[in-house]
């Protein structure tokens, strides 16, 4: 037996400290292009993590998560376009609320099905939103989308007012908002509520017997997942200053986070974040050499599902175990 040496308490702040320093210094070092790539990564990390709440923790595969993402994006864009003097945070919160509201509206429907039928129903609802978005021209401007809406300054009255148009300024806003979302989602998985989610995935009957109200719990999970997807959509809208049906409601918008969850590692919290990072990097590199990005992604997805079910996080844990753990954990 080797006595475990407990490191002093301050050391546990070293890694988060380094991470925070890197995040703070990132836009200063890498310039606008890479800053924008990072914002894109962060948006999809939150979007994929919100889907992960359903896929990994509750065991429900949603093929229509673009409904909530797009709902949030359009809510923010339309609010900024139509309401004069709309503040920055109210606009983002509106996006989140819209995502949550959409989720709340469809949750009675979703509660009635599970498994394959759940996947198909969410697919249909996502398509319904896509079609409705194109057809309801009066509200959404059809295929042209909503663009060029004013991006409000970040202002605390009388103290400070910062323009959000430069990429660097927007970067700090985006990572704070999206970071808070990720922390909240992570915290949620550690609460008793998170345990009920996993219980619903593994043994719904037993959770029912224990006295939990499953339909209501699922309803809450959908609403929370929709809220975070809506926030991601909202930041996306602010980031691009343009939302179109093909950009936010298209079926590929629903598939992207599914790929991220799988490539990153299903069943883990870090999976979708790693997946978003990997897919963003792959996209950046692949688009320089080929126009067949989706073909590439499809092949990657098939390979991961066939041969590497634990994804990137699984690979990392495996390597860590092989390289750094002297005693095998048998």
């Amino acid at each position: 037996m080797i006595a475990r040496i407990t490191p002093p308490a301050w050391t546990r702040w070293v890694l988060p400290g380094i991470a925070a320093a890197i995040l703070l210094g990132y836009p200063l070092v890498f310039g606008t292009v890479y800053t924008n790539i990072f914002i894109h990564f962060a948006i999809f990390a939150v979007f994929a993590a919100s889907l992960n709440m359903l896929v990994s923790y509750t065991g429900l595969l949603s093929f229509g998560h673009a409904l909530f993402f797009g709902g949030g994006a359009y809510a923010t864009a339309l609010a900024l376009e139509n309401i004069p003097g709309m503040g920055l945070f109210p606009a983002i919160f509106t996006g989140g609320l819209a995502g949550a509201a959409f989720a709340l509206i469809v949750s009675p429907l979703l509660n009635r099905v599970r498994d394959t039928a759940f996947a198909l129903l969410t697919l249909a609802l996502g398509q319904l939103a896509y079609m409705a978005c194109i057809k309801l021209r009066d509200i959404t401007h059809g295929e042209d989308g909503v663009g060029g809406f004013p991006i409000p300054d970040l202002s605390i009255p009388g103290v400070v007012s910062v323009s959000m148009v430069p990429a660097q300024n927007f970067y700090y806003l985006a990572i704070v908002i999206l970071g808070i979302c990720l922390l909240l989602m992570w915290f949620l998985t550690k609460t008793p509520f998170g345990s009920i989610m996993i219980g619903i995935r593994d043994n719904p009957q037993r959770v029912d017997f224990l006295g939990f109200n499953i339909p209501l719990t699922k309803c809450l999970i959908f609403t929370l997942s929709g809220f975070f997807a809506g926030i991601a959509g909202s930041v996306y809208a602010l980031f691009n200053n343009l939302v179109t049906p093909d950009g936010v409601f298209h079926i590929m918008t629903s598939f992207t986070p599914i790929m991220m969850v799988y490539v990153g590692g299903i069943g883990t919290f870090a999976g979708p974040i790693a997946g978003s990072g990997l897919m963003t990097i792959i996209e950046e590199i692949a688009t320089r050499y080929t126009t067949q990005l989706v073909l590439f992604n499809g092949i990657l997805l098939v390979l991961v599902v066939m041969f590497f079910r634990t994804g990137f996080v699984g690979l990392y844990l495996l390597l860590k175990q092989k390289l750094f753990e002297k005693e095998s954990s048998r």
Binding site: T116, I258, Y262, L301, V302, V305
Partner: peptide
């Protein structure tokens, strides 16, 4: 189970 099958077939579809 069902979820990997759905994801696999959608991957094949994309290809």
């Amino acid at each position: 189970g069902h979820i990997p099958e759905l994801v696999l077939t959608i991957g094949i579809g994309l290809i």
